[in-house]
């Protein structure tokens, strides 16, 4: 394999190295690639929102399908711009209240449903050591998150068991995520040594 002759591969490789240069210290190369990343991502997002929201969900339904119901969310969206006018900035609270209210309202039943599923999943059918550990672990962890009592006496002992279970869980999650990150790093190194420099096939 030979060194890449593609200009895009070279740009990607040099930007990768610029980001990695931050491991040494903050430098102009990192600042340059950071600004490119932020700038491009904003430009890309604006373009995506314009095509997927303004055109697809406002312009087309309004102009082509004559669906005038979209005027309601359109007005709510436009109210966000009221922040640009000092005296009328309070109007932007209306769409925010709508978003927060809808989000909270929708999450209540689903949160309860998830909670119930978790509780039911903790109630095993078969009597095994593993199932007993699960029950004790969930119970002690739940008591750890009980804020109405101090962690003293018997409650303190139970919560210590609970926090031990939590930390074991976190340890496992930590290990699994680190493995995933290492595989991402390997992917980048493969790109640099393979696609760019052609050292490995």
């Amino acid at each position: 394999m030979a060194i890449s002759t593609s200009i895009w591969i070279w740009i990607a490789a040099l930007l990768t190295l610029s980001i990695y240069s931050f491991l040494y210290k903050d430098n102009p190369f990192y600042k340059f690639s950071e600004k490119i990343l932020v700038g491009i991502s904003i430009g890309y997002t604006v373009s995506i929102y314009f095509h997927n929201t303004i055109i697809a969900k406002v312009w087309n339904p309004l102009v082509h399908d004559h669906n005038f119901l979209v005027i309601v969310p359109l007005i709510l969206g436009l109210l966000m711009f009221s922040r640009l006018f000092k005296g009328k900035a309070y109007l932007s609270r209306i769409p925010i209240a709508f978003v927060v209210g809808t989000g909270c309202g929708m999450s209540i039943p689903s949160s309860f449903e998830n909670l119930f599923k978790q509780v039911q999943g903790t109630m095993p059918q078969v009597f095994t050591i593993g199932n007993i550990i699960i029950l004790i672990g969930v119970l002690s962890t739940l008591i750890y998150f009980f804020f109405s009592v101090e962690h003293k006496g018997i409650i303190g002992k139970v919560t210590r068991v609970g926090i031990t279970f939590i930390m074991i869980g976190f340890g496992a999650a930590f290990g699994a995520t680190i493995m995933a990150r290492i595989s991402l790093f390997i992917g980048r190194i493969q790109f640099l040594l393979g696609d760019w420099l052609g050292i490995i096939s």
Binding site: I19, F22, D26, E34, L37, V38, S41, I42
Partner: peptide, 15 residues
Amino acid sequence: FLTDSQFGYAAAVNG
């Protein structure tokens, strides 16, 4: 506001 991009945001906050 910084950016909508997850890692763009992380890079900028680190900066």
